[in-house]
Design a protein around this nucleic acid. Structure first.
Lengths: 215, 215
DNA sequence: TTGAAACATGAGTCAACATTCAGGTTCTGG
DNA sequence: CCAGAACCTGAATGTTGACTCATGTTTCAA
């Protein structure tokens, strides 16, 4: 996320990528197949041969493109991070203020999870398969998020508070909602869920004041 | 969590438990060692021999008490569930109202996580090792939690809202805070974190009204 | 056309466990 | 003291699957 120019689907560690068109196609197929297999069966249940078969290439071909099983996995996590940040940035681009951005963000997040279930599971499993990649994923995320919150607080759009704590609480809430309503119950109404979630994040559990108070 | 009387540390599937004192002691040592090893190295990196060595018993002994590697793991998840619920129930026992209960709950939760880092990691890894146990863990949790919220709402102690969504958002927030400030940064000030978290959960991000409003 | 770089392949290697088992040792009631 | 139950043990077994490699095949610039 910081060393490569980001042509789209994460970089390979190897000395530079494929040289020919054929090579690029094969790499892409392997990456896609890996995401699908890891996301479905899980890292440890997935054999390299599952990936290569699913990609329609020979077993040995895998090692032409990746140094190890773990390496593809890490590449997928990094890729998912970049894509997620991109999707969120887009969705929030022209929100008039932070509270509205939160509302849009949570909706976009749920939507995104639902459209990328496999990669989402890969990210979660990274906590145990590639802890460093996992932490990097959330570190990058939380740093940008915290920036947003503290600036919004300065502008008076949200209350003051410990942004580090808030960011992690909010990320946790989104993550769990993504798991529950994006992956497990993928028939739930995304809009309803994200509205309810945004309401909690914005107003909290406290009972609303009965009548005219400030805003 | 439902078929055994709950003497303390989860049950074994086998036809009834150990008959002698020696047996009970050995079982306990295995359970403790397993929790420690799984929590530290992770499920797949942990060999049965790691557990038995750490417990100071022979390799074969493991299979006197457990049918398989997965079985101990599940037992640990169930045990952690019971203990966590117990700790939270206790901590919240004499809260005057739900908002206060949330405050106390999040503090107790962080504290508990910090005192049981290993088992906490086991629970999280269960999502991939024993998905059914993982879902059961959160199902049980969320059902009780939802009860609390809806009753509190009826009493007017908290606002009305989609309790299913709220529960999962709140569990997610706590879980991430537990990971970040309970496991990763175990030197953070638990009280400060839980106050900030409780404030977010109770009041949300919205800017506070300038002057006297309800409550 | 041609040689070499790039790419493709799958049988074979090898180490890492989970689980079994046949044979002890210790305890307990009678 | 004795039989049988309960418990303990670690060498041996069998499987699994990541990774290597020797041998092709394809591409492409000169």
């Amino acid at each position: 996320m910081s060393q490569h120019s980001g042509s789209g689907t994460a970089a390979v560690q190897e000395r530079s990528g494929p040289k020919t068109e054929r090579g690029r196609r094969t790499l892409r197929r392997l990456l896609d197949a890996a995401g699908e297999e890891f996301g479905t069966r899980g890292y440890h249940e997935t054999a390299i041969s599952n990936i290569t078969q699913s990609a329609g290439v020979g077993l040995g071909t895998f090692y032409v493109y990746f140094k190890s099983k773990e390496e593809v996995f890490k590449a997928l996590v990094a890729d998912m991070g970049a894509r997620t940040r991109h999707a969120l940035t887009e969705s929030v681009k022209d929100a008039p203020n932070r509270l509205e951005a939160e509302r849009l963000g949570i909706r976009a997040y749920l939507q995104f999870v639902r459209e990328h279930k496999s990669l989402y599971r890969v990210v979660m499993e990274a906590q145990f398969v590639a802890p460093e990649a996992y932490r990097a994923y959330y570190r990058t995320f939380s740093e940008a998020y915290r920036q947003q919150l503290s600036q919004a607080a300065k502008r008076g759009e949200i209350s003051e508070g410990d942004d580090d704590v808030r960011v992690w609480a909010l990320m946790g809430a989104s993550t769990f909602l993504g798991l529950k309503f994006g992956v497990w119950e993928d028939d739930a109404d995304v809009n309803a869920v994200s509205e309810a979630a945004a309401d909690l994040m914005i107003n909290g559990l406290a009972p609303r004041a009965k009548k005219g108070d400030a805003s």
